[in-house]
């Protein structure tokens, strides 16, 4: 388990990194936290010609808050996110999800950008980005672009990010914090810290009467990418929510969820199992979100 040969360059700026990537002609790889790339190198499943180390770029680290969004720079460590009061306050769903990401040691190195760029379909951070309508900023040596999370993920370990592009930051739009929002995150894995078999994220917004005015429900591990369960979101919005309607709304929606999901079978679980627990985890996440949102009204 030793890497194949590669060259190494330490980039000092975003521009320099993108220049190295451009010069790499598609054979370069970005080294961020290395928590996925390094194992893939040592198993020779990744064989870049050059590694572009972005850990020294100060512009790629940090969490910033402006009027419309929270911007998290790509190389911000997962541990820093977990300890961030800004994340806790504005992005509680991300904070909840992060407790399921690996272990403290991997979070000390692992970055938000690395997790998004790696795009494991069962990974927590892509799921949260999708649920929260995040936008992902990509830089090329000559240009940059901002892609909505809904369009970013293409398939298992595949994104729209070109090999010559650098993921520089992710923007989470701010919800108008009017104390009616709740979030919930549930996942199932055999061992704590493993990739989820299935994970579910929910964010629910209620009006003053407790009716649902907005809902974002996303599932991971049920398809080649994390998915938004739009049918369920629609149902929640149109039915409103009261104590006695939630259960029936869910029961109506569950067959729809199951129909659309397309998980894989592997050594850890069958597709059928993933489908069945997806429904229950979604329900639990929604329940938590609603409970929290209701608490926020009172």
């Amino acid at each position: 388990m030793k890497s194949a040969p590669f060259d190494y360059v330490l980039a000092k700026s975003i521009y320099e990194a993108t220049r190295y990537l451009a010069e790499g002609e598609g054979e370069a790889a970005v080294l961020a936290g290395g928590q996925t790339l390094m194992p893939m190198l040592s198993m020779r499943m990744a064989r870049p010609s050059v590694l572009v180390d972005i850990n020294g770029i100060t512009d790629l680290s940090g969490i910033e808050e402006n009027n419309t969004a929270i911007e998290i720079k790509a190389c911000t460590r997962q541990t820093e996110l977990l300890n961030s009061p800004i994340v806790k306050y504005h992005l509680p769903l991300l904070a909840q999800a992060l407790t399921f990401v690996g272990h403290s040691q991997t979070r000390n190195r692992g970055t938000i950008g690395g997790s998004l760029a790696h795009a494991d379909p069962a990974s927590e951070i892509p799921l949260v980005a999708l649920a929260l309508d995040a936008e992902i900023c990509l830089s090329h040596v000559e240009s940059s672009r901002q892609i909505p999370a809904t369009e970013f993920f293409l398939g298992p370990m595949m994104t729209v990010c070109e090999p010559t592009e650098l993921l520089v930051s992710v923007h989470f739009p701010l919800t108008k914090k009017e104390s009616r929002v709740g979030t919930g995150f549930h996942e199932m894995s055999e061992r704590h810290g493993d990739f989820a078999l299935v994970a579910a994220a929910a964010k629910i917004e209620l009006d003053n009467k407790g009716s649902c005015i907005d809902a974002a429900i996303a599932l991971g591990g049920v398809d080649g990418t994390p998915v938004r369960v739009t049918a369920l979101e629609k149902k929640l919005r149109s039915n409103g929510i009261s104590d006695n309607t939630l259960e029936s709304a869910m029961e109506l929606a569950i067959p729809e969820i199951l129909e659309d999901l397309n998980p894989v079978s592997d050594q850890h679980a069958t597709a059928d199992y993933r489908k069945r627990i997806a429904a229950i985890l979604a329900l639990r996440a929604i329940n938590d979100a609603i409970t929290e949102a209701k608490g926020n009204i009172a």
């Binding site: 388990m1 190494y8 080294l31 290395g34 390094m38 194992p39 403290s104 040691q105 000390n108 190195r109």
Partner: peptide
């Protein structure tokens, strides 16, 4: 394990515990 799971290679990197198999 050399793939970042078992933690036997842990060290402190500028005071922070990390896995040395996952660093160059």
């Amino acid at each position: 394990c050399e793939h970042g799971v078992c933690g036997a290679c842990s060290i402190l990197y500028d005071g922070t515990p990390v896995r040395s198999c996952s660093l160059l």
